[in-house]
Amino acid sequence: MKAAEFDYARAASVEEVCRLLDSANGDGKIIAGGQTLVPLMVMRLTRPSLLIDVNHIETLKGIMIDSDAVVIRACTRQYDALNDVALAKALPLLAKGLAMVGHPQTRNRGTVGGSLANSDPAAEICLLARVLDAEITAVSSQGSRVIADKNFALGAMTTALSSEECLTEVRFPIWQIAGRIGTAFDEMSIRRSDFALVSAACQVALDQSGVCRRAVVGIGGAEPSPLRVDAMEQRLVGTKLEATDLAAAADLLRDAIDPITDNHASADYRRRVARELSLRVMTVARDEALAARN
């Protein structure tokens, strides 16, 4: 398990990353935390000719929070994001999901942007980006663009990023809505630290009378990339999120989802678990919102 040969370059700036990517003619790979990329390289499932190290670019690190959004720069360690108190306050769901990423040693090295760029179907951060309608900034020598998360993941381990683009930051908008917000994240993994067979995330906003004004529910691990079901979310809005509402929404999810089968679980299993976990996160998020002080 030794990687095939490659050239290595430690980039000092995003501009240099872009230049190096251009020079590699589509065969360059960016390494940030390496927690996903290095196993693929030593198994020789990925063979970049040039590895571009972004770990020393200070402008790719840091978390910025204002009333509109939490912005996490791409090379921010998952550990740093998880331990950011202001982040947890601004976007509790983000903190809840980050706590379920890998285990301490992979979080210490793994990055938020790296997880997104690899787009593993079961990665918690990809699901968080999906439910929070994240905006992902990518830079190339041609300039920069912002990609809405719903357009970002194209399937398992494939994204809208071109081989000349460098993911620089991800922006998680904070809901600008009057009301009480509740969140929940849950997942089913065989061992606790494993990638989830199915994960679920939910964020709801209730008004003063307990009526749901906005709801998002996302499912990871079940399909090649995280999914949301519009009809399900619409079913919740305007209700008081009674058990019957949640069950009806969960049924809509169950009917809409088209899960994968692999050696750990069947599609039917994932469908049942997706329905169940969606129920659990909707319930917890609702209860949290109800308990929240305005």
Partner: peptide, 11 residues
């Protein structure tokens, strides 16, 4: 008795 084995059985 993995989760999927038991989950499928219970189902």
């Amino acid at each position: 008795m993995t989760p999927s084995v038991l989950g499928d059985l219970i189902a």
